[in-house]
């Protein structure tokens, strides 16, 4: 009976240390797992959910087969590792983390805190407090908070908009669960293992199906951004930088980097960008070309993408910080607007 409870717990949080050690204890050979179609199908379902679901939560039939639930997570993870697509990894991490959040919400305040300590070594307390008429269930050290939540783009999550005192951020329970979800997501994105694509037959079949699907998605995303450049779809920040450039206004270093990286990513060639910079008061073609090629990745190993909206806000290049929350990234904005504009 004791074991059933822990399998159920592990199935809820299959990425946790506890789940991993339980799986090790069970020690079922992969060939054996491959014969259990419930597991294989569930693993496939997990990845299909990741690719196809936009935001809704994956459906879970946890109670009927906790063992399949737990094991399928690890099969899915191995497939993500083997396919090696960052796109798939991100989407998979997102839905798994969301599912974790759903379970966490139902736990007690104390369990949440204990969990955060045990899995992420957070400094967290679940001694609730009432401050100026508002109730908070948890306080967590701001460095732990930032490590998980610094990338959130809604303003309410900015540290400057939180109650911070003596190193601790006050959170409500739903907020704590949300921050934990982000920590789980980051953990899953970072935990990359090199896995050769060499599975027993049933899992191998799923591997091939998913790999094809992911490739199709990647091609489509690429298409959305490549092709004809639609300058009407540029985000306001980039439009403003372009206007400044055309008027020959000197741009700061970071502004030049942002606009160059943006234009390269939407498919403009180096020559056209050099031409734009010609208006700059301190223009030197050799230097401009060198730097643009560097950003394009032709000189170093990295091809750069433009900074995120959060960064643009911080360096005060964002034109409309209040609305920027609707997008995370200038390229994301472009992709979306371009699609909108192309609709008849």
């Amino acid at each position: 009976m004791q074991e059933d409870i822990s399998i159920y717990e592990a199935a809820k949080y299959p990425w946790s240390v506890m789940a991993r050690s339980l799986l090790k204890q069970l020690d079922v050979p992969l060939a054996e797992v491959d014969k259990n179609l419930r597991i294989v199908d569930r693993a496939k379902q997990r990845l299909m959910d990741a690719i196809e679901t936009h935001s809704p939560r994956p459906k879970r039939g946890l109670s009927d087969d906790a063992y399949a639930e737990l094991t399928s997570f690890f099969i899915a993870k191995a497939l993500v590792d083997a396919i090696g697509s960052m796109y798939l990894r991100r989407r998979w991490a997102t839905i798994e983390a969301k599912s974790t959040e759903d379970f966490l919400i139902k736990e007690s305040d104390g369990k949440l805190a204990q969990f955060a300590k045990q899995e992420f070594d957070w400094q967290i307390s679940s001694n609730g407090s009432r401050i100026a008429g508002r109730t908070y269930s948890h306080s967590i050290h701001f460095t732990n908070y930032l490590a998980a939540a610094a990338g959130f783009h809604e303003r309410e999550w900015k540290l400057v908009n939180k109650r911070l005192n003596n190193g601790f951020v006050m959170l409500r329970k739903t907020e704590t669960a949300r921050v934990l979800r982000a920590a789980v997501e980051k953990l899953l994105i970072r935990d990359i293992k090199k896995v050769p694509a060499d599975f027993p037959p049933n899992i191998q079949r799923v591997y091939e199906e998913i790999a094809v699907l992911v490739q199709k998605r990647a091609d489509r995303l690429k298409q959305e951004i490549e092709g004809e450049i639609v300058s009407e779809a540029f985000p306001p920040c980039m439009q403003a930088l372009l206007t400044d450039m055309r008027q020959g206004k000197p741009l700061s270093h970071i502004a030049r980097f942002a606009i160059t990286a943006f234009l390269l990513n939407v498919g403009m060639d180096v020559d056209s960008i050099v031409e734009l910079f010609m208006q700059a008061p301190d223009f030197r073609e050799d230097l401009a070309r060198y730097q643009i090629e560097h950003i394009a990745g032709k000189r170093g190993s990295t091809a750069y993408t433009p900074p995120s909206c959060a960064y643009m806000i911080s360096v005060r290049l964002c034109v409309d910080p209040d609305k920027a929350g609707t997008r995370r990234h200038p390229l994301n904005y472009y992709r979306y607007r371009r699609k909108q504009l192309s609709k008849p």
Binding site: L146, A147, K158, L159, V160, A310, Y311
Partner: peptide, 9 residues
């Protein structure tokens, strides 16, 4: 990114 949040604070 975390340090940027501290600067913003």
């Amino acid at each position: 990114q975390e340090r940027r949040e501290i600067v913003d604070y």
